[in-house]
Nucleic acid binder design. Structure first.
Lengths: 350, 350
DNA sequence: TGCACTCTTGCAAGCGCTTGCATTAATTCT
DNA sequence: AGAATTAATGCAAGCGCTTGCAAGAGTGCA
C-alpha cells in the first residue's frame, strides 16, 4: 500500500484541455490567457471564462521554462556551515522580510537556499542551476572573496555588506565606519573614558564598525586597548559567553560598543549578572536597531540600519542587473538612536 | 543603450554540447551525469570529467520540468495583507530557519511567497502554479478555514498551528492548551490572585492558550474577568500600545500571561514605564521561548515551543504526503521554563 | 467581381532534460 | 561457429507552454 501514487487528481488540466473545451488551438488559449490583443476580444473572454470556471491554473514551471525565466531570486546567508538557526538575529530576519516584500511587489519570489555556491559538500546552487534569475547575498560572512568571484563570474548578483573602495561588484551596505564612529563619539561625549569593543572582526561589516570605533578614539587622543577588544560572534548565547570576560575586568572600562544589538543584549545581561549597572556603571551602545531594543530595560542606544531602504535598493539593483544594466553600489547612512543604555546626558559617577 | 541583452555569456552549455564534446548522444550524457549504471564506467567517468572541466552545470529548471518535480516547498505565513515585516517575531524566524535546514537536508529548497493562495489581489501561488511540490503554512492567522479548504483540495499541505479534534487535514502544533494552563497554574501557585491575559483571541493558537488559561483559573475556583483579557497583536510596537491600558488598572491584577514572548516584553516595558516592578508587583509569563528571553532583565519565564522538533515533523509529514502517504497530525509538548519574570518562589508583597 | 488589406487563428518548432524502447556491439554457451 | 544473452548506446517522444510565421476569413475599394 505504500507505492507512490500519481494522484495529481485535479486541476492539472493543461492549456491543451482548455483549447479542446473552447474549440480553439492551444496557441490561442495561450494568447488569450496572456490577454494578448492578437486574439479577438470575444474569444479571449470566452477562453478566460472557461479557464476560470474549470479551475485551470497555468503551469508556471512550464511557462518559465519556455521563457527561460524563473521569476525567483535566490537569497543566501553566507553563514558558516551548519544550521541556519544561527541567523536568528532579528536583523537578518527583518532583512529577509523586507526582501520578500520588495521582490513580491515586483513579481518575484524568494528562494532561500541552504548552501552558498562554493559549498562543496552540498549540491546545487539554484542560481547556477537556472532555478533563480539572480542572487542576493545577505552579509558577506567570511566569504567576501568567494562572493566577489562569484559575482564577477555570474553578474546578476548583489550583496548586502561592507563596500570597499575598489569594489567592482555591487554591494549595498550601511555606513558602518560612520556609525561606529558616531556611537563611540557619543559615549566619549558623555565622559566615558575607556570603551570596549565587542564583535567578530573577521566579518567585513564588523571590521568597518571597528574602524569607526578606532578613529573616534584616536580623534579623542586615545588608543585602542587590546584588552578591550573582545571577539564575539553574532549568536546571542555564544556572545554571552564570549563577553563573559568583560565583567571580570571592570573597572578597566566604562563603556561598550557592541557591534550588534543582540551582542549588546548579551553584554548587558552579563554585566548585570555581575552586579554592574547599565548605564550608571557602564554605557552600552549597540548596532542595528532591532525592534525589541526600544522595549527593553534599559532601552538600547544603537546605530540604526535603514533596512527597508536597503532591501528596496538591493532588489532594484538586482533587477536592473537582470535587465542587463550595471548595478551600482551604495552606502546608506547609519543614524545614532539615543536611548537609555548609554546613559545619555548623565555624567557617570566615577 | 538600454535594450536588454541576452548575455548569458558563459556556462550555459547544454547537455547537447557536452554530448558533442564527448562524441556520444545526449541521453548518454544525461545518464552519465546521473551516475547511471547503464552507461559504461569508462564513458561515464569521461563524460563527468568533460562536464566538470568545461564548467557545465545542469539546467535544473529543465530537469525539474521534465520530471514534473520542483524540489521546492512553498512556505506561507498567512498574516494579514500588508508587509511581511510583521513576522519579525523571532519565533517565526526561528521556524523559518529550522524549515530551511530540514528541507535542505532532504534536498528541497524553500520558497517564501508573499501571498496566500486565496489572496485575490495578488497573482500566483507557487504551489498551484506548479512551482512548488507542496506547501507549509506557518500559523493559521485568521484563515483557518481557507487553509483547511485549500489543504483538502490540494493535499500536499501541512500547517503549523492549532489542531482541532475533528481536523481532517495535517496540522502540527504545540500543546497550547496545556502550555497556557501550566503557565497560569504556576503563577497561581506563586500566590498570584488575579491574572490578566494578553493576546489576539481571533488566532486559533492563541485562543487555545486562552483555553488553558481559563481552565487553570477555573480549577482554582476563579473566573476570567473581562477587564483582564486584553486583545493584543503580535507586533511588538502595537502590542505595547495595546497593553498600555493594563498599567492603568493596576492593582486590579498581579500577574500577566502573555501569549507570546514579544508581547511579554512589551508588557514588561509598559509596566516598568509606570513604575511597576516585575516580578515583585506583577508576575509575567510569556510563550515561545525566544532566544533573547533568557538574557533580558528580568529573564522571561515562558512556555517553550519545541520548534526544531516541529520543523522536522512538518517536513517529514509533508514529504510523506508528496510521496502519496497520508500525513498525520501531531501535538507537541509545551514545557514551562521558569526564569525570573514570574517571581518564582517568592511570595508577592501585597 | 476581384485584389489588396487587416484581423484572427492555427501550425509547428523549440526551451533542456529524462527515459522507454530499439539497436548495435560484445560476450557466452552449446 | 552460430544462436542466445547481456551490456552499452542512441532515437525520439514528451514535459506544458510561448511565439514567429503562414494561412484563412472577412472587409473595403476600384
Amino acid at each position: 500500500m505504500t507505492e507512490k501514487k500519481q494522484d495529481q487528481s485535479l486541476s492539472n488540466r493543461t492549456m491543451g484541455d482548455i483549447a479542446r473545451m473552447a474549440g480553439v488551438s492551444e496557441s490561442t488559449v495561450s494568447r488569450a490567457l496572456a490577454g494578448s490583443e492578437l486574439v479577438a476580444e470575444k474569444t479571449r473572454d470566452r477562453i478566460q471564462e472557461i479557464a476560470r470556471t474549470s479551475g485551470f491554473s497555468k503551469n508556471e514551471q512550464a511557462r518559465n521554462f519556455a521563457l527561460r525565466k524563473t521569476y525567483t531570486i535566490e537569497v543566501i546567508f553566507p553563514i558558516e556551515r551548519g544550521t541556519l538557526q544561527q541567523v536568528s538575529d532579528p536583523f537578518f530576519v527583518d532583512m529577509l522580510a523586507v526582501l520578500t516584500d520588495e521582490l513580491g511587489k515586483r513579481g518575484y519570489d524568494l528562494l532561500m537556499s541552504r548552501s552558498p555556491p562554493w559549498d562543496e559538500e552540498r549540491p546545487g546552487c539554484a542560481f547556477t542551476g537556472a532555478r533563480a534569475d539572480g542572487v542576493i547575498f545577505v552579509g558577506q560572512g567570511r566569504h567576501r572573496s568567494e562572493i566577489r568571484d562569484f559575482a564577477r563570474l555570474h553578474k546578476k548578483v548583489v550583496t548586502w555588506g561592507a563596500a570597499l573602495p575598489n569594489e567592482d561588484t555591487c554591494v549595498i551596505g550601511s555606513d558602518n565606519v560612520g556609525g561606529g564612529r558616531r556611537a563611540t563619539e557619543h559615549m566619549l561625549s558623555l565622559g566615558r573614558q575607556s570603551i570596549a569593543f565587542l564583535g567578530d572582526l573577521s566579518l567585513p561589516e564588523i571590521s568597518q564598525r571597528f574602524e569607526g570605533f578606532k578613529s573616534a578614539l584616536e580623534a579623542a587622543g586615545k588608543t585602542v586597548s587590546k584588552d578591550l577588544v573582545i571577539n564575539s560572534p553574532f549568536d546571542i548565547e555564544e556572545a554571552r559567553s564570549a563577553t563573559h570576560i568583560l565583567a571580570d575586568i571592570y573597572p578597566s572600562f566604562d563603556g561598550i560598543f557592541a557591534s550588534s544589538d543582540m551582542i549588546a543584549i548579551a553584554a548587558i545581561a552579563n554585566l548585570r549578572q555581575r552586579g554592574l549597572r547599565v548605564p550608571e556603571d557602564v554605557s552600552v551602545v549597540g548596532f542595528d536597531d532591532i525592534p525589541s531594543g526600544a522595549h527593553m530595560s534599559p532601552s538600547i542606544t544603537t546605530v540604526r540600519q535603514k533596512i527597508r531602504t536597503a532591501g528596496k535598493i538591493l532588489v532594484d539593483q538586482l533587477l536592473a542587473a537582470i535587465d542587463g544594466e550595471t548595478p551600482t553600489s551604495e552606502i546608506l547612512p547609519a543614524e545614532l538612536v539615543i536611548r537609555q543604555s548609554c546613559g545619555s546626558g548623565r555624567i557617570p559617577a566615577n
